[in-house]
């Protein structure tokens, strides 16, 4: 089977507070440490597990992003992915959900995939919309929030996370599958993985390779516009209050203010 996994390089969510540049209205990506989205690490683990259990399958990681995103793809290769594709083009900067999904779908279409893995959502944007949009552009079914996936013949069966448990959902292949974060243990690369990652096939595509018009993607194609960027209510730096009998009320007020009740 030809399996694909869509991945993304993001500012390290654990150490970097995600910031927007008021001038460009885009995510600040300079001067911060960039990593493969931790959510994608578990998605890759799920894809590798499936590839290995199916046998005779190839797993390709695909990403859209600036040149620096090859580092994230190298990490995916080190983890055990067989091949990587990076779609990089200046015209892609500022792409929204649809632009991103359109681009990835165009690249995936050339490959005739059997199964496309995505994370449920990225750890920086959290929209969770790209996988569904890719599925729509490719005309494929989508199996979302999977915490377990099995392929049985020409069908995929997943356990789909719900509020109270899970649903067993099946669909014909090819399909897009999104993996619920934390469902799989991320793979820490072996030395062999790290060394062989340098030699595995790595291709780079531009917009013209995909036959996409620049007006459909990037900032030009965006269907949303940022009007302004403001400062959030500064996270009140540790308000410390001595209990004078009204602590319960103070806490309850706090919870209510933040819609936590």
């Amino acid at each position: 089977m030809k399996i694909f996994v869509c991945v993304k390089q993001i500012p390290d969510p654990n150490t970097v507070e995600s910031k927007l540049d008021p001038a460009t209205k885009r995510l600040v990506r300079t001067g911060v440490s960039l990593v493969l989205d931790p959510g994608d690490e578990t998605t890759i683990a799920a894809a590798i597990k499936l590839r290995d259990s199916l046998g005779n399958s190839e797993l390709t990681a695909i990403s859209m992003g600036p040149a620096s995103a090859q580092e994230a793809l190298r990490r995916a290769l080190a983890m055990g992915v067989d091949r990587a594709i990076l779609i990089s083009d200046p015209a892609l900067a500022g792409s929204d959900v649809l632009g991103t999904a359109r681009t990835l779908a165009a690249a995936l279409k050339r490959e005739n995939p059997d199964l496309i893995f995505c994370s449920t959502e990225s750890t920086d944007g959290y929209t969770g919309m790209v996988p569904g949009a890719i599925a729509e552009f490719l005309g494929l079914p989508q199996l979302t929030f999977a915490r377990e996936i099995n392929v049985e013949g020409t069908k995929a069966v997943i356990k789909r996370v719900t509020q109270t448990g899970y649903e067993v959902v099946e669909s014909p292949l090819p399909a897009v599958v999104t993996i619920a974060s934390g469902s799989f243990e991320a793979i820490y690369p072996t030395m062999k993985g790290i060394m062989s990652a340098r030699k595995k096939p790595f291709s780079q595509l531009s917009l013209s390779d995909l036959g996409l018009d620049p007006s459909q993607v990037g900032e030009a194609g965006a269907r949303e516009q940022v009007l302004s960027i403001g400062k959030a209510e500064a996270r009140a730096a540790g308000q410390i209050i001595k209990d004078e009998g009204n602590a319960a009320e103070i806490i309850a007020d706090f919870l209510q203010r933040h819609q936590l009740l």
Binding site: G128, M129, V161
Partner: peptide, 22 residues
């Protein structure tokens, strides 16, 4: 919600509708 997110994503792609989340 789990289900509506999936529906919204496909509608957006099918009709080229701008999509603002969260």
């Amino acid at each position: 919600t789990y289900d509506v997110r999936d529906i919204a994503a496909r509608l957006s792609a099918r009709h080229n509708l701008g999509l603002i989340t969260d």
